[in-house]
Amino acid sequence: MSKPKVGFYWCASCGGCEESVVDLAEAILDVTAAVDFVFFPVAMDFKRSDVEAMADGAMAACMINGAIRSSEQRAMAKLLRRKAQILIAYGACSHQGGIPGLANLFDRQSILQTVYRDTPSTVNPGDIRPEASTRIPHGEVELPVLDEQVKSLDQVVPVDYYIPGCAPPVQLLKDALAAILTGRLPPKGSVLAPDKALCEQCPRAPSKPDNLLIDQFKRPHLERIDPEKCLLAQGFLCLGPATRGGCGWACINANMPCTGCLGPVSRTRDYGGAAMSALASLVNSNDEAQIAAMLETIVDPAGTFYRYGLPASLLFARAGANADKGGHEP
């Protein structure tokens, strides 16, 4: 029997998700023994035409990492959706929009202006911008078009499963591969990680008081961090109460607060809203002015509470003059 075919593709991402595959270390040999990679542009020489030549559903599974923000990425997502029986959103960007999703705080026009005109290192006297197509002596050349907003993969094509994390923890990838190979997969739409908050069973949880109150939110690069005590109890913004567990407390064990890369548990409908609710209620004051002062150290709530998931949030993107449609896509 031939081995199941698997693909791995990247869209708007940093390459860290590919790194997590490399982090399989020796286990990668078991993987390649069990499956055939038929598309993996970062590591192997396959072309888009190879995918186009496949029969629909030829791949048992395809994982896509990265957010979707260009015409090319949308087209690849649709193509791979057709060719794969199981499509998996791999990593925080594909799952929730990720760090690239913070671009939804700005509109496309101002992003292009910043990059092609305003940054100090930009030298572009002709104010040249990327064009969808350009005539050159050899003919017409085309470039992908940047979308108005960044989207998660499931906002573009139907997704079967999600492997969360920035980048996904190796154990989650191993478990997912085992589940695919044995066919023991949970209901479609599931996030392939435990559905429990990170705080549950955190090695530092015993030092987290039941009636925790915080006088001052501290910033980790400015203070000493006690390596034993619950980070939240020390005043660091640890998003463990709102975040899904499954990373093995990677950041906590490295003495850094959780920034929420695994996203919410299934009961949450807006990750940042839940995180703000949990954290703000701990502020140790009943006085309006004092509360404001205590919240001052949270300088960028969008970047703090929606760091990995603005596109998947209820508001999706910054409201603005060019957003005259409102509501939902029908």
Binding site: V157, G189, L314, A323, H328, E329
Partner: peptide, 19 residues
């Protein structure tokens, strides 16, 4: 009116059944 950006469908369905 509040002009929010339209939210995309999720998995081909209007976002979150509760909305």
């Amino acid at each position: 009116p509040l002009r929010l950006q339209i939210t995309p469908r999720v998995n081909g369905r209007p976002r979150a059944a509760e909305c």
